[in-house]
Nucleic acid binder design. Structure first.
Ligand code: MN
Ligand code: MN
Ligand code: ZN
Ligand code: ZN
Lengths: 151, 151
DNA sequence: TCAATAGATTAGAATTATTCTAACTAAAGA
DNA sequence: TCTTTAGTTAGAATAATTCTAATCTATTGA
């Protein structure tokens, strides 16, 4: 519309896009850079039940959506998000790490043929008979992975 | 002792060392080569409760004991043993595969600080509330990994 | 608003785990 | 013993990930 520059320019400020992604970064104490915002949006926006991605998957997705981001940054970001408690790392597969946006207490179904990971809420699960936690140690996490194959 | 060669040489045959390792290879239908025998002996002999190794660990151990074996053969052998049902592959750690000689139904304590893996017999463990196996799929295995860190 | 600065991004090199290749060697069977 | 088949090997290749060092950018204090 306005092709002519205004005589007196109002202060140019970053638009107050308080997206969920942006808020998440702020809360985590991470500088909201373009690429972190883009990656956080891909990871979290519109995925109420969480998602599971590899670095390569997220990188390809970001590129397809036109984000200018390098693979190194995707790795950096996934690791930072994990450290910040925004993600958890899953190791189900020799060779590649998966990252999980679902931070709730849950376990996984892993379809070995397709590589698909499906969440299983821990709410309905009870594990009885685990040994006492060795002294000097504390439980960081209990992972249950049900490995499935095509029958 | 005998520095002089015998007049009539008896047929030189491989000594009939029917070790456990050798028997295991035969049963699995694997040719009992020097390196497979050496690796099987390291993996299985004198380890009634099983052991957990990486390729690199087993390679170093074999070398220390004077076995002439390459790292490629260690990888080949671990994969063959796994396919043959003599080992199972464990993935607990991003970056490296571990191989487990305990083929009984069991789970693991994983000490994240030291990398130690400790077995937990599945006999005393009950997991309730897992979802029904999706149709078209069957459960290949259920892995429970209790991840511990120094308190 | 702007310059200074701490922090982030990047391409490409480096590293690590693993597999592949293709030449060599050993086990099996006749 | 001979022939055949399978296994071993060094080194190259590949894949995932991290590192390096140069460049860029978000933040902040003036
Ligand atoms: Mn995968
Ligand atoms: Mn390890
Ligand atoms: Zn999940
Ligand atoms: Zn075990």
């Amino acid at each position: 519309m306005a092709k002519t520059a205004p005589k007196t320019r109002k202060t140019v400020r970053t638009p107050p896009v308080t997206t969920a992604a942006l808020a998440r970064l702020r809360d985590a104490g991470l500088r909201p850079t373009r690429q972190r915002i883009a990656l956080a949006a891909l990871l979290f926006d519109g995925h109420p039940y969480g998602r599971h991605v590899t670095a390569e998957m997220l990188f390809d997705e970001a590129r397809k959506r036109g984000a200018r981001v390098s693979l190194a940054t995707v790795y950096n970001t996934l690791n930072q998000f994990t450290e910040a408690g925004l993600l958890r790392e899953l190791v189900v597969d020799p060779g590649t790490s998966h990252f999980d946006t679902n931070m709730g207490d849950h376990h996984h179904l892993y379809f070995e043929d397709s590589g698909e990971l499906r969440d299983v809420d821990a709410g309905g699960i009870e594990i009885k008979g685990l040994p006492a936690t060795p002294r000097g140690a504390e439980v960081a996490r209990v992972d249950v992975i049900v490995r499935l194959r095509r029958r």
